[in-house]
Amino acid sequence: MKVAVCFKIIADLNMPLDRDWNVVDQGPVDLSFVRQVFNCFDESSLEMGLKLQAQSEAVTDKIELTALTIDDQRADLFLKHLYALAYDHAVRIQPDDPMDLVFHPLWVSAVLSAYIADIGRQQLVILGMQGGEGNNGQTGYLVAERLGWPCIRNVMDIALKGPENGLTVTSMTDRGTMMQTIDLPAVLITGNSPQSPFLRVPTLKQKVKASTRQITALGQKELGVKDKGMIRKDKAPAGLYRPESSRKVVFIEGKTAEDKARTLYEQSLKDRLNQ
């Protein structure tokens, strides 16, 4: 079985200070000076891929695992990291226009599904439920629509179901945890997953071994997504703005934590608690 995990590298948005957000007409915002991290849901997806691969070795043929991202060279370091963690293929597709990466899930999904259908030929695709820059939350559904495959959202865990290519998928719903046994092909969209919260860390030995492996870098043209005009735009940007915060913090001073707690209680909480 072939599996593709689609991931996105994002700026660690816990970091930027206020002054960095002096915006900018329509974006994208330059965040190249900010530390880059795996999008948190994609970290779970990538870990799920590794668990599935390990499971497959015992049950059936070993799963062929591909990590796939559309990005510029900044992603190469992360792709190497995934080689070190036993991903079989690390593929990067170079975008023509960085703006599309953030705000145009119709385009992102077209490029991802072109790779999956024509080159990678995977039977299972795992994506995250939301990327931290565009906050679109749409790419996974659109990949499913483009490939004409069914999809499951809010996935927490995946397991192989015997040797005949079926899967058991655990997902979270409003009514409780749902377990489905499904046929492939399918698109799975990862939500908050306490079963696979983080991506494992490679050993030094694994890193050294991976350092010489080549990343497959492709252009949009090689995917047949030559012309941006081929993919319709369903919305037009009308500006970015920074919402105002109406609060101004007042710090409580004091020598010890106990002093500060007392001031907080006396000055701000006591009356409110008695209301």
Binding site: W21, G27, E133, A236, P237, G239, L240, R242
Partner: peptide, 20 residues
């Protein structure tokens, strides 16, 4: 329809015109 939604991890908002 013109919409606004949070982007960049809720630090900014984007205004978008839905066209189709």
């Amino acid at each position: 329809v013109e919409v606004s939604k949070p982007v960049y991890g809720n630090h900014l908002k984007a205004r978008l015109t839905l066209t189709q």
